[in-house]
Design a protein around this nucleic acid. Structure first.
Lengths: 203, 203
DNA sequence: CTGCAAGTTTGCACCAAGTGCAATGTTGCG
DNA sequence: CGCAACATTGCACTTGGTGCAAACTTGCAG
């Protein structure tokens, strides 16, 4: 799921990627068309041109395939900058940058990914839960970032709280973008989202 | 799941409640002892003294039973007060009261419930997904509260953002309580949790 | 107390998700 | 070509979960 479109590491690997993409594509199309429960793994496998058994060689569960969720990794350069107290030095501003980086990592190479995933999640609340759980799995990655940063530029509070704020920020921006007709870039909504949150806790 | 220990509405109903409690208890004990995947519904049913089929008359899924997550309902009196702009009139203070009400509704009659659920989620990340699903299911209930309140005492921002803040507050308080050795009442940690969140967004 | 109606439990048959295993194909490479 | 590594597949099996209808419990009216 990282942004390396041209990994020339063998023909075999490329085929594998193509298959995975085909599965995700088939899964998403079918689920959007007929609803999650009405689509069986068998149907997805058939649409992707593989056997049902092979489906599970690629994804651990139907949910994973539908959300197309591999693992994500934050850009190493950005990570270094953030833990060193950057990029701007003001925590709130850096929070926004971090949230943007997260959104980028989620989207992967496909700019349409957030739209499709949002649509899916609206149609199938079940998947929202899965999506959050996936976030939770990567929570440590974000929390570590804050812990390291704390050493050189002390945080106003503990890393766990900072992490939660970042995730809320991501979610709020996504909601905002969705409410605004999904125009333009999700990250543009980050400042407004942060302002809204601040308005509540400072009321 | 509401806090009415002595609902004298029929003997039949009492029996039903007792069974449900027995199922949750059996499920939690077994899962904490052997791990989620090693415990079958059949085993839980047997431990609770019912047939496997009856298990599904009480809970929609194994996950629901393990988390003991029925539906919750906020106290009607409190709801009325909150939408009327109460109880204190200061939004942040009222947010804390709302969060406390949520924690109460979740815990139900058993004060140990939050501890067990936290422990379960730490041991079985799988359950996180379900926990979030539950959150999402009840999000509307809380959001409606804010929408109604807005009519008589305008909010600084939209109901959706307020709702997210409340849930983060709940979560943060729970974390805090957990970090402090799970002493005393979770709700005591709410003010500190709110302060921490404010510290981040105001940095 | 009797008997009926409504609600509950349970067994049974069934579908779908997911796993382990072993056979069968494919692919890359010396 | 031929072999070793890897990928696909079929098959049998476990488990979660549902629909249905029969049996049983319980509350209540007469």
């Amino acid at each position: 799921m990282n942004a390396n479109p041209v990994d020339d590491i063998g023909l075999r690997a490329r085929k594998k990627r193509a298959r995975a993409d085909a599965i995700v594509d088939a899964a998403q199309r079918l689920v959007l068309a007929h609803g999650f429960d009405a689509v069986t793994v068998e149907a997805i496998a058939e649409a992707a041109g593989i056997s049902p058994r092979t489906f599970f060689n690629y994804f651990e569960s139907k949910d994973d395939a539908v959300l197309g969720q591999g693992s994500f990794d934050l850009d190493a350069g950005f990570r270094g900058e953030f833990v060193a107290g950057g990029p701007t030095g003001r925590l709130t501003a850096d929070l926004e940058v971090l949230a943007a980086a997260l959104l980028g990592a989620v989207a992967g190479s496909d700019p349409h990914a957030p739209a499709r995933v949002l649509e899916l999640m609206q149609a199938e609340p079940r998947l929202l839960a899965h999506h959050f759980a996936w976030f939770e799995r990567h929570k440590n990655q974000v929390e570590d970032l804050f812990t390291e940063r704390h050493a050189c530029r002390p945080l106003p509070t503990d890393p766990a709280t900072c992490t939660m704020v970042v995730f809320v920020l991501v979610r709020a921006a996504l909601d905002d973008w969705d409410a605004g007709g999904r125009q333009g870039d999700v990250t543009e909504h980050l400042p407004a989202a942060l302002a809204k949150i601040a308005a509540v806790v400072n009321a």
